[in-house]
Every structure is written in structure tokens, then in C-alpha cells.
Amino acid sequence: MMQFRNIVRGGALAALAIGLAAASPASAEEIEISNYGVGTNGMPYAVALGAGYFDEVGLDITGIRTSPGGAPTIRNLLAGDLAYGEAGLTAALAAIRGGADIKIIGTTANTVAEIGWVVMPDSPIKTIEDMKGAKLGYTNPNSTTQALALMLIKAAGLTPEEVETISTGGFGPGLAALEHGQLDVAPIVEPIFSNNPGKYRLLTWAPDALPPLVDVLAITTDRAIAQRPDFLKKMMLARQKAVQLMTENPAEAAKHVAGPYKMSPEVAEKVISQLQRPTGPDNVRYWGEGALYLPSMKNLADAQILLGVDYSDINWDEIVDDSFMPEDQKGLYDK
């Protein structure tokens, strides 16, 4: 995604995007999810398809295609090719600030729980406080992982001068650098961590060290709001059903995730359970059911200051629309 979440995953996991070609709500359609089959943000849509939730709400979704990132999703939304998408908050804010008619219609991931930091098993670094003098990796300049690295240093009670931060160009190269001794601490994402048991030692998951930071949001355009409100409501409802299954029965949800994400049901269940573990003082879960969790949105917007971008002038009421959420998710901005 652009900037902050363009950020997250340095081009590998960037902002999760779903798109739907503009067509009659009764028509068979495919949805297009950025990094589908790789990025954890897209897992609820695999569950919605596999468990039949799209059918239950009256949507004829025949398949899910992948796309390379959130930036193309926003471009397609604005070009009229998509009615619904997921994108990182700062990508959406940058587009809105530039005059785009984008509206945020739900929070789909309330935290960056899929991101953590690892060391090699024999590393003397046992806690984040031990990072003084260490080499800490991040994916790309002006990325989410760069901002998170700076936040992690602060959370450890250290200063930026006490930890050397190094751009590696992606999560994979960062882990390779860690293995070859060029880094002491590297960021990692699920499901890479769970797919490589014992290879790295977890230092911390992001939500255990940092405040909630919104991962991705459901977005649409004023045009889609006017032309396809029923479709938007059904998409949000089908996704909510999927998230509820993932929270209440990870093993069952994992059956629908395993195939598209090329992992065993056991690993898929582990990833789902890990990400849906409530974290922080507010017991926030990774996948939200749609409610706009304002604290995590504000935290991420504020974190952009670390990268030289100031969003303190945001008028949230002007850029959000909760009318397409399931009834029990409306108006929950501050909870």
C-alpha cells in the first residue's frame, strides 16, 4: 500500500484489497483481493467463500482472484472497476487528501498482529530491552515496518541512536540477513512464522509491545454508495459471518483457509488462533467484524509523524460511513 501500510510487509503483505467489478448485485461475480493466498487480511474471504456465507447473504461470488497490492485497488476503485476494497488507512487518507471520493466503511483488521520480530534461536537478545547496540531490520523506507521499528525502539526504552535500523527490501530478504548474521532482529509475518517452527525465536508480536494500529479498512466510493448500497451491506455481512466463525471455531475456519493459503489445516488453525487472540488493555482482536475502531485508526495516523507525515487535521466524521455495517457494528467508533 502507499506509505504506512505500503508499507506493512514491504511490498509483500501491503494493504489487503478486495474488489468487485461494477455489475448487478444478482450477477455472478469474482472478487479480487490483494495478496490473496499470502496476506492474512484476506483469510475471512476464503472462509466466506468456503463456508457459503456469500450465498447466505445473496451474493453470487464465484471465485477470488489475487492482485499485487492496495495501491492498484484504490486506482481501480477510482476508475470505476471496483465497488469495494480493502486498503491501509494511510493509503486511503493520502487519496482522500488528494481529493478522491473514497469513504471508509469499516475496520477489517484492528491491529498489526500478523507482524512480529524474531531473532535466531541462539541470540543473546531475550527481550526488546536487550536491543541496545543491535541491528534491527525493516522492509523499505517509509514503510509500516520502519515506523513500527521506531515504535518498538521507543517501547524498549531506547533511543533511535542506540539501535541501528536497516532496510532489507522485504520480509524474506530480512530473514535471510538475520540467518547470515547481518541483522540481529528481523520483522516477520504470519504465516511465515508458523510455517517455519523452530527456525527463529520470537522476540515479540507487535500487539504485545505496541498500541493497537489498524491494519486494513473496508473502503468504497461515493459512486458505489449511490449505486450499490445493497451489495456493500451484503459484503460486510458475509465477512462478519466469516470472522465470527474464525473467532468461535478456528479449526472449522481453518479448513476453508488451508487450500487457498497452501498450508495444512493445523497450521491455518494456529495462525487464526494466534491472530484472534485478544491483545492490549482493550482486548482487541486482529480481524474485526466491521466496527470502526477509532483508537487503532488514530494510533496509526499519529505514528505517521515518525515518517514525516502529519494527519492531525483529519475530520473522521467526514471520511467514514457506517451505514453498510451489520447493525450490531454501527456507531462503535470509540469502543
Rank of each mutant, 00 (worst) to 15 (best):
M151L: 15
A149D: 08
F193M: 11
L148N: 12
T168F: 01
T165L: 08
L183F: 01
T168Q: 04
T204W: 00
V185R: 00
E162N: 02
W205E: 06
A177M: 15
F193R: 01
E190H: 11
S167Q: 06
A155S: 15
F193H: 03
P173C: 12
A149I: 09
G198N: 04
E179A: 15
K154Q: 14
L175G: 10
Y200W: 14
A176P: 01
E161W: 03
L175N: 14
P191H: 08
E164L: 01
A186H: 02
T159N: 14
Q146H: 11
G170K: 06
A177V: 03
A155R: 01
L183D: 08
P173N: 08
Q146I: 10
E164H: 02
A155W: 02
M151W: 00
A176T: 15
I192C: 04
P160M: 12
I192P: 02
E179V: 05
G157L: 10
V189P: 01
I153M: 10
T204S: 10
E162K: 02
E162T: 08
Q146L: 03
G170C: 11
L150W: 02
I153N: 06
I192A: 10
P187S: 09
E161F: 05
K199G: 08
F171K: 03
Q146E: 14
L202E: 04
K199T: 11
E164S: 14
A177F: 12
S167L: 00
V189C: 13
G170N: 13
G157M: 12
S167D: 14
N196P: 04
N195H: 02
E179C: 03
G169A: 09
L183Y: 01
V185W: 05
P173K: 09
H180V: 13
T159C: 07
F171V: 15
S167C: 06
G198R: 02
F193T: 00
F171Q: 09
E162A: 15
P191N: 09
M151I: 03
G170I: 12
L152Q: 07
G174L: 08
E179G: 10
L202R: 00
G169E: 03
A155D: 06
G170T: 11
Q182F: 13
I188L: 01
L178K: 13
L150Q: 15
I192H: 12
L202K: 01
E164D: 12
L175M: 11
D184K: 05
F171E: 12
E161G: 11
G198P: 07
K199R: 15
I166P: 04
G181P: 11
V163S: 08
A155M: 08
E164I: 08
P160I: 09
G174A: 11
Q182K: 13
E161L: 11
A186C: 05
M151A: 14
F193A: 08
L152D: 11
P187N: 06
G174S: 14
I188G: 06
L150T: 04
R201I: 02
T159K: 14
A147P: 02
W205H: 05
G174F: 10
Q146R: 07
N195F: 00
W205A: 01
N196W: 01
